[in-house]
């Protein structure tokens, strides 16, 4: 167990160093996310949007950003030619854990910036900031969990282009729906117990995240090794 943890930690450190040096994922995602928000704001034409639509737009931007940025994590290894070395030296689960944490952290960073811009640009008033943060964190974890396995899958295919969004969007529908309804509640608030009203959605998100991550851990070896 300790050896497993230290191996996963080493992998994560390596990826973090690479990421900090180039800042590829975070930079691309930040630019994408901010321009997408601006486009949405322009399309809305300055009208005040309903809290439900605001929540939906926020999560659509997050979903597209994840599909753009996270698909790179395994393709980059293949392009650098490091994938064989990694395959020889690390077990599947350590690789999965390292990539999962990296994806989670980078999307979380991007999402916090996005959230700040979103709150300012649309002049949103948040009724329950705590609930909003928990929802974003949980949603990001589920997103990263599902995307990591699918990114490993598409790194093995011949034609990678539009495949990740195609696989990812339908699979993430349950997570997206619960996240939107929890975010909606956190923005508008309910007179009696917003947290209790959001409990169903949060539980569904937690369940989805748990199922997706445990299935990925079990299945990852089959994608990783030849």
């Amino acid at each position: 167990m300790r050896r497993w943890l230290s191996a996963a930690w080493a992998l994560l450190q390596k990826d973090l160093q690479l990421e900090l040096r180039s800042r590829y994922v975070v930079n691309v995602l930040l630019v994408f996310v901010l321009s997408a928000l601006l486009v949405v704001a322009l399309a809305a034409g300055g009208d005040a949007l309903d809290a439900r639509i605001q929540a939906g737009l926020l999560w659509i931007v997050i979903l597209f950003a994840a599909a753009l940025g996270l698909g790179r994590s395994f393709v980059a290894e293949e392009e650098r030619g490091t994938v064989l070395l990694l395959r020889l030296n690390a077990t599947g689960t350590t690789v999965y854990a390292g990539k999962l944490v990296l994806s989670f952290v980078s999307v979380l960073v991007v999402n916090s910036v996005l959230l700040g811009a979103f709150l300012v640009l649309f002049s949103v008033e948040v009724a329950r900031p705590g609930l909003l943060m928990v929802t974003i964190a949980l949603g990001t974890l589920g997103l990263a969990g599902a995307t990591t396995l699918l990114a490993a899958i598409i790194a093995r295919t011949a034609r990678r282009g539009p495949l990740l969004p195609m696989l990812l969007f339908p699979l993430l529908c349950p997570l997206l729906l619960s996240a939107v309804s929890a975010t909606h509640l956190s923005l508008s608030g309910v007179p009696l117990g917003t947290w209790r009203a959001a409990a169903d959605s949060l539980l569904a998100m937690a369940g989805f995240t748990g199922v997706v991550i445990s299935a990925s851990v079990l299945l990852f070896d089959y994608v990783w090794h030849d």
């Binding site: 699918l150 899958i153 495949l163 299935a215 089959y222």
Partner: peptide
């Protein structure tokens, strides 16, 4: 669509099987 982008039969079988099992575990939520 995933199957079509994989050429080698053994790899195609394995990778698409992973996707299929993964998809099936998320269906109950849906």
């Amino acid at each position: 669509a995933l199957r079509n982008s994989l050429d080698e039969p053994e790899k195609r079988a394995r990778i698409s099987a992973v996707y299929n099992v993964f998809a099936f575990v998320t269906v109950p939520f849906l």
